[in-house]
Simulated scan of single mutants.
Amino acid sequence: MNDKIIEVVDRQLAAYNRKDAAEWASTYAVEAVQRSIDGEILANGRAEIQKNIAARFLEPDLNASIIERRVYDDTVIDHELIIRNFPEGLGSVEMLCIYSIENNLIKSGIFKVFNKKLTKPSI
């Protein structure tokens, strides 16, 4: 198993949980692309990736944890539990994150969000 492959994804997760947008984005290649599992482009390039995450990082309870991780050559697949502050209240989603790594940076991320649960409705 390539420790460098895992290290960049671990750095990205740690920066996400610290809500450090600059550090989080720095784990992505300058020309990286983020897509939904259906192929929709969510962000194109490191600058757009950083810009898009800024609003998410305003959520006070935001936190991600790994449920399961698989590593195949230069690809890391994380199954994560994400705590979120939704407009309707505190809750969680599960997410599949498929990262392709090149030159110790994330070249692409493909994401599937599922199993949304509301744990504390807004009043």
Rank of each mutant, 00 (worst) to 15 (best):
E7Q: 10
S92M: 12
N2R: 13
S26E: 08
I41E: 11
H79I: 09
K107T: 01
R35P: 02
G91K: 00
S108Y: 06
K120W: 02
V30C: 12
V30F: 08
K19G: 02
E102F: 15
A21Y: 00
K116N: 08
D38V: 04
R18Q: 14
F111S: 08
S26Q: 04
A47P: 03
E102H: 14
L118M: 03
E68T: 05
F111H: 14
P121D: 01
K116G: 06
F114G: 01
A14K: 05
V9C: 10
L58M: 12
T119M: 14
S65K: 09
V8G: 02
A47K: 15
K107H: 13
N115Y: 03
D61Q: 14
I77G: 00
D10F: 03
D78P: 11
I53C: 07
D61G: 15
S122Q: 15
N17F: 09
L118W: 11
L42S: 06
N2G: 00
N103K: 15
K107Q: 10
Q12S: 10
I41A: 13
S122Y: 11
V93D: 13
T119Q: 12
V113K: 03
A29R: 03
H79V: 03
K120N: 03
I5F: 00
E31P: 04
L42G: 13
I49K: 01
F57P: 13
I123T: 10
P60D: 09
A55Y: 05
T27H: 07
E88Y: 13
L13V: 08
E102R: 13
N17T: 12
D73E: 14
V113Q: 07
A32T: 03
D78T: 05
V76Y: 02
I98W: 14
A32Q: 00
N115M: 02
D73I: 06
R70A: 12
S92K: 05
A54I: 15
E31R: 14
K107D: 04
K4I: 00
V93G: 02
I53W: 14
A54T: 15
Y72H: 11
E40S: 09
A54R: 15
I6G: 00
K4E: 11
I49G: 08
I82Q: 08
N103Y: 05
Y28R: 02
S100D: 13
